[in-house]
């Protein structure tokens, strides 16, 4: 998993909680990397899981909520860090439809070893978009948070229905986005 996911997670901890808590959970998680991340490096995604687990223990907030919150936060960081991906995009559906072919394609250009999740989006009508997330890292909750962050950014009133596909692991999740009429 790319280092930006870790650096942004630690940034969120500093911002939403405090630096002491950040350092504490890093220490408790006993990470192979020692918690030293660069945005361009590649790290084992289980380190993120270990950090979330420790954060959940510290804050007594559910893992699902924490990961979804992180997804929401991460989208805001993407908007600030990569404004070119949003240039000329007027609505959330259009942006989500371009994630696989624009954003992930760009990631693969920079990092040949990167394995971003598969995001397939298809319109089910003028006001409905079906989005299917699939990844071995089982971060369906993060995808959920990212979708919510996207809707917030475009300031759209959209109902999000979530359905785990195959099992509840979060490996494959179907989201049905319906715009308010």
């Amino acid at each position: 998993m790319k280092g930006i996911i870790f650096t942004e997670f630690l940034e969120m901890l500093d911002e939403k909680f405090d630096p002491e808590l950040t350092e504490r959970i890093i220490e408790k998680a006993n990470l192979p990397s020692g918690g030293a991340y660069t945005t361009t490096g590649t790290y084992d995604h289980t380190e993120l899981v270990a950090l979330v687990v420790e954060l959940s223990k510290e804050t007594e907030i559910g893992i699902t909520d924490l990961v979804r919150t992180y997804g929401f936060y991460l989208f805001g960081r993407f908007v600030r860090g990569y404004p070119r991906f949003f240039s000329g995009i007027k609505d959330s559906f259009t942006f989500i439809e371009g994630v696989e072919e624009v954003v992930h394609a760009e990631v693969r250009k920079l990092y040949a070893e990167a394995k971003p999740p598969t995001i397939s989006a298809s319109r089910k009508g003028d006001n409905q978009l079906e989005v299917i997330y699939e990844s071995e890292r089982c971060l369906g909750d993060a995808a959920h948070g990212l979708i919510l962050g996207c809707l917030d950014y475009f300031k759209e009133e959209v109902e999000v229905e979530r359905e785990n596909v195959d099992d509840d692991s979060g490996k494959k999740v179907r989201f049905l986005l319906t715009r308010a009429a």
């Binding site: 630096p19 020692g34 030293a36 490096g41």
Partner: peptide, 15 residues
Amino acid sequence: VLKKRLAREKMARRQ
């Protein structure tokens, strides 16, 4: 906390 953070930042810089 600052010392720990500095140590991590150095490590990250080396990486």
